[in-house]
Design a protein around this nucleic acid. Sequence first.
RNA 1: CGGGGAGUGGCGCAGCCUGGUAGCGCAUCUGUUUUGGGAACAGAGGGUCGCAGGUUCGAAUCCUGUCUCCCCGACCA
Length: 514
Amino acid sequence: MSAIRHALNTKRDDDFAAWYQEVIAAADMAEESGVRGCMIIKPWGYGIWERMQRLLDDRIKAAGVQNAYFPLFIPLKNFEREAEHVDGFAKEMAVVTHHRLIADGEGGLIPDPEAKLEEPLVVRPTSETIIGDAMSRWIQSWRDLPLRLNQWANVVRWEMRTRMFLRTSEFLWQEGHSAHATAEEAQEETMMALEMYRAFAEEDVALPVIAGEKPENERFPGAVETWSIEAMMQDGKALQAGTSHYLGTNFAHAANIKYQNDAGRETLAHTVSWGVSTRMVGGLIMVHGDDDGLRVPPALAPFQVVILPMLRDKPEDESLLAYCEALRAAISGQSALGEPVRVLLDKRPGKAAAKRWDWVRKGAPVIIEVGGRDMENGVVSLLRRDSLWNTETGKPAFQNPDRDLCAQTIPTILADMQNGLLVEARERREANIRRDVSDMDTLAEHFSREAKYPGWVEVQWARPTGEALEKVVERLKELRLTLRNVPMHAPPADGPCIFTGEPAVERVFVARAY
RNA sequence: CGGGGAGUGGCGCAGCCUGGUAGCGCAUCUGUUUUGGGAACAGAGGGUCGCAGGUUCGAAUCCUGUCUCCCCGACCA
């Protein structure tokens, strides 16, 4: 086996955090903005997010939920109505207090003391309170229910520690909000959103996830139940990739969302909220990236196929471009994963080999290079991003299909790659889950051993609540561990609780987390 | 917010201790020669050293403040 010269400088195994940042830079996805915790999302990164938006929005609409838009600014008093919600968010709010600037006399600008707002405005950290306001006006009768809305928006949370895509001060997301006549209907909606996220993550992002309920201490502030999808990153840490909350009547009570039922009696509605954010892009990087950069699942790739003509700055270039253009047209006429294939003929000046590595780092699924000899033989040189290297030679593993047949094989390659990434990630996750740990010493030993990436442990527990749960959380904290979720599809408990020794009632995942 | 590290051409860094108005590698541009594959040689362009004060004849270098980034922790849908 020859030494492979990888496209990145940092290997995942050497320094996962540094590798993650290098992928973002090398794939030209985003960069720092100079504003604390805020990033500039560049075209390739934003293109991936746009694909996520498109595919998730299709699912949202198919579920019968309608899009709307609510204001960025929320009156401070809205947050005072729901006690737990305030506690959860008060420490991380950006607040607007003035509406005008004046010169400070030294060449600078300061907020005009004369222009102080009567009531400060909060930049939304989430929109339950302002959407609740609207719902209280829009809902009068049982006939107005259910009311099911979604908005695509940016939100701001003043986090202490930020990381690109995973936790930024400002981030992009969708937030679904609904109001229902009964608890049962609201809970059904909560599970509908959760299942929609599971399908989106697995089918579109090729991100295997565990859907389940968050323990009480991890609930959304003000929620009765919080459900999540959890994904395992390549360093074994967990990433909460989407959440769905059953809010009971807590927010309805705070915002006065009431309706007259069919018996004419005034009744509180039950509300639900659910969200997925640009954090999913970070998850995609940490699950599918490799030592050569990003690998974008075909369903999310802004370009699924990139054609690189080997231009020589000579008259022959013209016929080579025509040959490539015919290939581009043939491929764009194909359909893959239910949509027309997105193909780019990259005619920028520059050496094909240099451009190839750019596209490898960006993670374009299929790269096709075409040179003069290819043209003479009626073939192309095709490189799959999911099997980049010939490990015998240490060189890129080019295939040389016939040009005219090549286009027809693209849909199969893309579908195969989409599925392959999911399977690979799922196998890696399963290989890194332990289910045989039944005492705290073993748990501590497992997470303190030499192995760099200890993965997750599924334990059995008696679902303690209140102070008993707090104790458990404290003990886990000492090991830098968190409770992730209680998986929905797991065998019933059949042993003692790892924390208390009482008979266990269910299983719960324990892991380090982002 | 606590501890640690760092901000110098697009990127990665040296210079700072022992003040005298910047240097290296990669990238970029031009030319030549090459080229079935991440080219070679030659030349050139590009930075008031994060920002604001201060000390000084003189500050990337010393002092103070501040902003931003990275790592660890606390915090955290």
